[in-house]
Nucleic acid binder design. Structure first.
Lengths: 336, 336
DNA sequence: GTGAAAGCGCTAACAA
DNA sequence: TTGTTAGCGCTTTCAC
């Protein structure tokens, strides 16, 4: 494989001239430029990114710290992935996927090995040790999600409390008085993952605000758990007339449990989900849902980080997106 | 950030000794080893992967060439991603996600930039130009999927013809005589993506073999398209009693169209899907499905490549997985 | 068992 | 506008 030296020889110039022709970091005469590019073409030269990275200390690679806690990747996280990767590519960066069991320690290695210019964090806990670690080392990062204390950190997140508010408000207007929240697995709650905790808090806040009755439960990310939890809830609280489902992988199970219990959706029970439109339209009935712009979030997360890396952005950006409620066929007036 | 030289000084040894202590590539006395490790600890030294990579020409990074053709990543591809990333991590490799619009040319750059040890290809076409390119350069790669000509290439794939056979066979035994195949978008068929073409061929082969009637259609990856295609099929071929759905994002739409047409599943119409269990259990009724071990495939793909890179594997491995049919609630005897 | 020194392929400061 | 050269931080050959 040809190297810069080969180009220099063939073009009859110095090594550094080739380098500068390529980078444009200093003026090069038209003649020389031509000869250099000709040589590059002739030899099918490709600069060695590795060597460049060693010299510049920039790899043009960003990493996504990828949650392993979640057994099943939700469709949301998939959309993040795709859009982050695309945004990165557009900015000339590549995306490294990093899965690690004990992220807290591994994250340090990662930052020090010189391979990664910056990090995108997901599944942020209210007290996230990774944030402290990264801040201490002054390592560039951005978050999808946010913690309790976000001073000086760029993040984009969904405004879960707002989503809950919108949903409950809508259900209340339909006349519902007894609402159940189906949340993510308890493990995530115990880890203090932001959206799990915030959604739960917001739920009870709304319940109290409207003077309603409310229950919540945690639920594993599969249809079976959704089914079981719903059956359990219905047995224990027969007066429930509406469900708010945060954990999208349970949707199917919840609907099945309702059907088996002889409850028609939306005639007897209403259901609002927080999910992607794809999943909302997969079920029958289709689900009234708060639809978060996952794609936009991923893109924003990536761009925040990259802007920062490129020195374009000094002050941190903090964005909370407030998605609208899309009414489909799973909600209706409370008839009980 | 400390470098090897600092360790050497602190431990009172030569630079090369530190290197060899770390790599174990030549004997080091116990005393020296101790001193070196102590110094490493004291200084919190982390070897610079970049520098090592430049010297060894190995980065311990593999890349996944990530399909951009597909608008929506299917849950299958998500599972691939997760399991590939995990397997890579376990073997000490990191996974780079590579999205590119014109893969054919970009792929070359990638291989020559020295950043990537090997590539995993997905969404393989029967005549895939990337294969030729990679082979010419003798660049290490493995495939999830397979093309027409796979001589000397490692791959893991689902045995789609087998899956189709199993499904049709089952439907035939239930008495179904008129079956429709809902395939992926036509764009993928035109690109000659293996599973799209093979599934279609296998479908008609089985249809003829059993002397049935069959129709197929292509369908975009969303519920709405599934809905429309199903309506169209029902209008045109009222005698259809069973559907085989390859494109999993359409499931919901297909079911909705059936329900709206007054057809009960499985009493009036049966449905077999090729999908993950998560999606199969999301709908009501739950779907009888051929369930591919996506996770296993991803892992196998990664391991094939890494084994090759580590020099453990000389001859290519070629694996076709034959998944079983899981019967759920969407299939029943044909009553018409 | 250990050390010295020559790369790996590029960037960028310094000189001209 | 161009050339020379000293790094970037590690691996590895060669000599002791």
């Amino acid at each position: 494989m040809p190297k810069m030296e080969d180009i220099a020889k063939r073009a009859g110039v110095a090594l550094s001239t080739v380098s500068h022709t390529l980078s444009g970091k200093r003026p090069v005469s038209e003649k020389v430029r031509q000869r250099v590019y000709q040589a590059i073409k002739d030899l099918e030269y490709q600069p060695n990114t590795l060597a460049r990275a060693l010299a510049t200390k920039r790899t043009q690679i960003i990493a996504l710290l990828y949650p392993t806690s979640t057994q099943q990747l939700s469709s949301a996280q998939t959309d993040f992935l795709t859009s982050i990767a695309k945004a990165a590519t557009q900015w000339g960066y590549a995306l490294l996927l990093w899965t690690s069991l004990n992220e807290d320690t591994e994250i340090l290695k990662m930052t020090q090995q010189g391979f990664i210019d910056g990090i995108i964090l997901m599944e942020i806990a209210l007290d996230d040790p990774r944030i402290t670690l990264l801040k201490e080392r002054k390592y560039p990062f951005a978050m999808i999600g946010h913690s309790k204390e976000n001073e000086g950190i760029s993040f984009v997140d969904l405004d879960f409390p707002y989503a809950v508010h919108t949903s409950i408000d809508y259900l209340v207007k339909l006349g519902h008085q007894h609402i159940a929240l189906i949340n993510h697995p308890s493990a995530l709650f115990e880890k203090g993952i932001g959206y799990v905790v915030r959604t739960r808090e917001a739920f009870y806040k709304e319940i109290h605000h409207y003077g309603l009755e409310g229950v919540d439960c945690f639920c594993d990310a599969n249809a079976q758990s959704g089914y079981e939890m719903t059956k359990m809830l219905l047995a224990k609280y027969p007066s429930i007339t509406a469900f708010l489902v945060l954990n999208e992988w349970t949707n199917g199970g919840v609907l099945r449990a309702l059907a088996e219990s002889g409850l028609k959706v939306p005639d007897d029970v209403s259901l609002v989900a927080i999910t992607s439109s794809h999943l909302a339209e997969m079920t029958a009935p289709t689900l009234t849902a708060v639809e978060f712009p996952f794609t936009e979030m991923g893109r924003l997360g990536a761009e925040m980080l990259i802007r920062r890396l490129e020195g374009q952005e000094e002050k941190p950006m903090q964005i909370l997106l407030q998605p609208a409620l899309t009414v489909r066929s799973s909600t209706g007036p409370c008839k009980r």
